[in-house]
Design a protein around this nucleic acid. Structure first.
Length: 593
RNA sequence: GGGGGCGUAGUGUAGCGGUUAACAUGCCGGCCUGUCAAGCCGGAGAUCGCGGGUUCGAAUCCCGUCGCUCCCGCCA
């Protein structure tokens, strides 16, 4: 080894020891006869002192050294003189008196700062990702990611789970996300698909009798990006036999609690995690992935608003639509312009408008609002009371169909929380969403679409509804939401042939289609399939939230840009015509004409 | 596929019709034996992403384009 110790580990107890360190020059301070170098390695930073009087050769070299040069030094750990201690550094009580210094490698001046956190253009970071990853904040994130994954492996292994790898080259599945395809050289005109998740394979492992399986699985989806979505991402894929919904949820809940408590300083808002039905979460938060770090819940005002003389509300309620609202704390003083901006947000979600009432402790009535004149004093009072609004609050009201109202108020709730600083970055709030509808009606195709996937079991007591009222049937599905993100989804699967065929029928899949696409699954299920279920937490999103980062690129070593490109390597790229010929592929200019 | 934001020395920003294109930091040179965002002195460094247009005059206004980013659609 070229080093005897790590930079970050040296303390007062090492004083007097001769050590050899190696790493990168983080900063340098040249005082002519005395040079200070901050030496950085993965473990931290150690101050080096190079004195002309005691080490003339090392001193001469040290004066030429620059940022990010790679050096090796040998010297004695000494306590810093009184008053020279740096309380900001874990190693701040000591320094290394260097006797010899070797330049292992010089470095060009980096294109951006390694030694301070500054917002650097994302394209530049990605182009020089290996330098970006050198920054302490990125190293902290990737180390946290490692610790989370190690924790998961240990936790599940200790509980009888076996980690099994499944193929990356698999079969296309037309439903769901767009597949990444890989052409087959040996089978002209045929393609593999990269897995969107190992869903089918983990169920087959249950048929195979492994009972408890997990995998840190890379998944691929060729869809457009978001801050929390990359074309390739990592899931903890997990499946268990002979379990019910509660078993899977309890396992994951306990694991998540321990991860937060043992690996982070975050404050867990609620333990155990709240369990909200799909109906309830939409009613209270307008979304199935609520941020529970703050309140500002949505309240239904349909009865009061419907009885008012405000035509927009009365007509909406008469038409079977709904009127709901939220109270933004302390926003009664918002200017007309600020309220208009909120209205634009609501309209972007399909709302036709945004009504508002400012709650004021005035003598002229409980609220100031352009629509106050359409309400009686009692109605206004009732609204303020039901909203739980205090003087100074701004009540924002949307009237429309339930999905539009939910979408608009969800957007307003998140936007306002962000502006008002309600989402405490030191807190983390999980909740389970259960009792999802098994199907969503696809009006275009005139059929039911599975709301999770087509192997999700209905609630056993809802099985009769499949024949009478499929839209009312609930699935044995469970999602885990955290701080406004969906971080896991799972279900108990169907292991009964008759129910599975009924589902295929409802989603418009005839027996021949089903055989074509899932023949291997259906055949396997005939050989003694245990009741089973599983879940798949997204590792990137989880680590993002644990690290307090705003997007998953910050916890992925080499992520893609929003345009699904790697700016460092230059991928994707054109390939040699010979490669294409071997793969029986011809590139067609789709932009032509 | 659609909508929004950003693009100015190596980096981060200011400037938003007429400036010698500013500031900080980094870089180069000099001074300096207790700094730790070291300090002081001096210097170099920008065809203002690219292309076109409007104008007497464009970093600034308009159109297009490229890149990054946020959002909608999409993501069983």
């Amino acid at each position: 080894m070229l080093k005897t110790h790590q930079c970050g580990e040296l303390r007062l107890e090492h004083a007097g020891q001769q050590v050899t360190l190696a790493g990168w020059v983080h900063r340098w301070r040249d005082h002519a006869g005395l040079v200070f170098l901050d030496l950085r390695d993965r473990s931290g930073i150690m101050q080096l002192k190079v004195d002309q009087a005691s080490a003339p050769e090392a001193h001469a070299l040290a004066r030429d050294v620059r940022s990010e040069w790679v050096i090796q030094v040998t010297g004695t750990v000494v306590a810093r003189p009184a008053g020279m201690v740096n309380p900001d550094l874990p190693t701040g009580e000591v320094e290394l008196e260097v006797s010899t210094l070797t330049v292992l490698n010089r470095a060009k001046t980096p294109p951006f700062y390694i030694n301070k956190d500054e917002n650097v253009d994302e394209a530049l970071r990605m182009r020089y990702r290996y330098l970006d990853l050198r920054r302490p904040s990125m190293q902290r994130n990737l180390i946290l990611r490692h610790n989370v994954i190690r924790f998961i492996r240990n936790y599940l292994s200790d509980r009888g789970f076996i980690e099994i790898e499944t193929p990356i080259l698999f079969k296309t599945t037309p439903e769901g996300a767009r597949d990444y395809l890989v052409p087959s050289r040996i089978h002209p005109g045929k393609f593999f698909a990269l897995p969107q998740s190992p869903q089918q394979l983990k169920q087959l492992l249950m048929v195979a009798g492994y009972e408890r399986y997990f995998q840190i699985a890379r998944c691929f989806r060729d869809e457009d990006q978001r801050g929390d979505r990359q074309p390739e991402f990592t899931q903890l894929d997990l499946e268990m036999s002979f379990v019910e919904r509660e078993d899977v949820m309890n396992l994951i809940e306990d694991m998540m609690i321990r991860i937060v408590e043992e690996l982070t300083d975050l404050e867990l808002v609620t333990k155990p995690f709240p369990r909200l039905s799909h109906d309830e979460v939409l009613r209270r938060f307008g979304t199935d992935k609520p941020d529970l770090r703050y309140g500002m819940e949505i309240v239904d005002l349909s009865d009061i608003a419907g009885a008012s003389s405000f035509r927009v509300f009365a007509d909406a309620v008469a038409a079977g639509n709904t009127v709901r609202a939220l109270a933004a704390p302390g926003c009664a003083s918002y200017s007309r312009k600020q309220i208009d901006e909120l209205g634009v947000l609501a309209q972007a979600e399909g709302a036709k408008g945004l009504a508002w009432m400012a709650v004021e402790p005035g003598e002229e009535g409980p609220v100031r609002s352009p629509i106050a004149k359409y309400f009686s004093a009692e109605q206004l009072q009732a609204i303020v009371e039901r909203m739980g609004a205090a003087p100074g609050d701004l009540i924002l009201i949307v009237a429309d169909t339930a999905p539009v109202v939910c979408a608009a108020l969800d957007t307003l709730r998140r936007t306002l929380a962000s502006r008002l600083g309600l989402a405490d970055p030191k807190k983390i709030a999980f909740c389970w969403i259960v009792d999802f509808p098994l199907f969503e009606w696809n009006a275009e195709e005139q059929r039911w679409d599975p709301s999770h996937h087509l192997f999700t079991a209905p609630m056993w007591e809802d099985v009769p509804l499949l024949d009478t009222d499929p839209g009312k049937a609930r699935g044995q599905q469970y999602d885990l939401a955290c701080n406004g993100y969906e971080i896991a989804g799972g279900s108990i699967r169907i292991h009964d042939r008759a129910i599975q065929e009924k589902i295929f029928g409802l989603i418009g899949l005839d027996v021949e289609d089903a055989k074509q696409r899932f023949g291997h699954m259906l055949e396997a299920f005939e050989y003694g399939t245990p009741p089973h279920g599983g879940i798949a937490p997204g590792i990137d999103r989880l680590v993002m939230l644990l690290a307090g980062e705003p997007n998953i690129r910050e916890v992925i070593a080499f992520p893609k840009t929003q345009q699904a490109a790697d700016l460092m390597a230059g991928a994707p790229s054109e390939v040699d015509p010979q490669q294409l010929a071997e793969l029986h592929i011809r590139v067609v200019d789709s932009t032509g004409g």
